[in-house]
Design a protein around this nucleic acid. Structure first.
Lengths: 121, 121
DNA sequence: CAGAATCCACCGAGATACTG
DNA sequence: CAGTATCTCGGTGGATTCTG
């Protein structure tokens, strides 16, 4: 599994232009995206989510856990490690999420146009 | 086109249990649902959305309009009427929305269980 | 009828600093 | 390493009252 890139969410995410939201809070969708390829450690998640403070990231992870979408596993040896992973329930969300993302990609220009027309009005 | 029922969204909507959200604000998804079958007047929308104050409903409608998802048309005769309608862009969202709603319906019990397990912990 | 104006409470989110 | 503890601030959503 490849490491997550630091610029994974630069520029566009999260944008208010996107009319779809997943999870309870602002960063939930990005966390889910990070976990698509497999389990990740807290510090691994912090790389692409470097604009999120640890407090807020923890909050988001707790919410996802409370909703049964991710699981949290703690190891003490050889060093302290906490691993987050999509549950089967969380993984089953990926289908509708992909449908929504495809729609957004297809209509991004229209969304942009609508917002820009509003500004110049 | 049938009138919208007053109990259309009673009981469950909007629930924090649902991990999908459409539009920018709390009520956007319900407005879209109301417009699925065709154009509706402001006062028609107020029937199923009776728990939403007119100010907040107007806000939500304005947001949807700014995002190009609905259109607003005003008539003065014979009486004042303002009609809201899904744009083609808004209508094209219905596909992914249905996918998300189907997922939620399929996994509602699991979502409920996860939240309840959290409470008793 | 279709809102606008005003005021207010809450909560999500961020900054900063600290810890088992 | 993986978080907590405070504090703060702004924005969303709601109650109430008023209007072209």
């Amino acid at each position: 599994m490849e490491p997550l890139r630091a610029d994974m969410f630069d520029e566009i995410c999260p944008s208010t232009l996107n009319p779809f939201r997943f999870g309870r809070d602002k960063w939930a969708a990005l966390v889910i995206a990070c976990l698509e390829d497999g389990p990740r450690r807290f510090s691994e998640l912090r790389v692409p989510l470097h604009r999120v403070t640890p407090k807020v990231l923890t909050q988001s992870l707790r919410h996802l856990e409370q909703d049964g979408l991710i699981s949290r596993t703690e190891y003490a040896v050889p060093v302290r490690r906490v691993v987050y992973e999509l549950t089967p329930l969380g993984r089953s969300m990926l289908g509708p999420i992909r449908a929504a993302c495809a729609w957004t990609a297809d209509h991004w220009d229209e969304l942009l146009d609508a917002r820009e027309a509003e500004i110049t009005r």
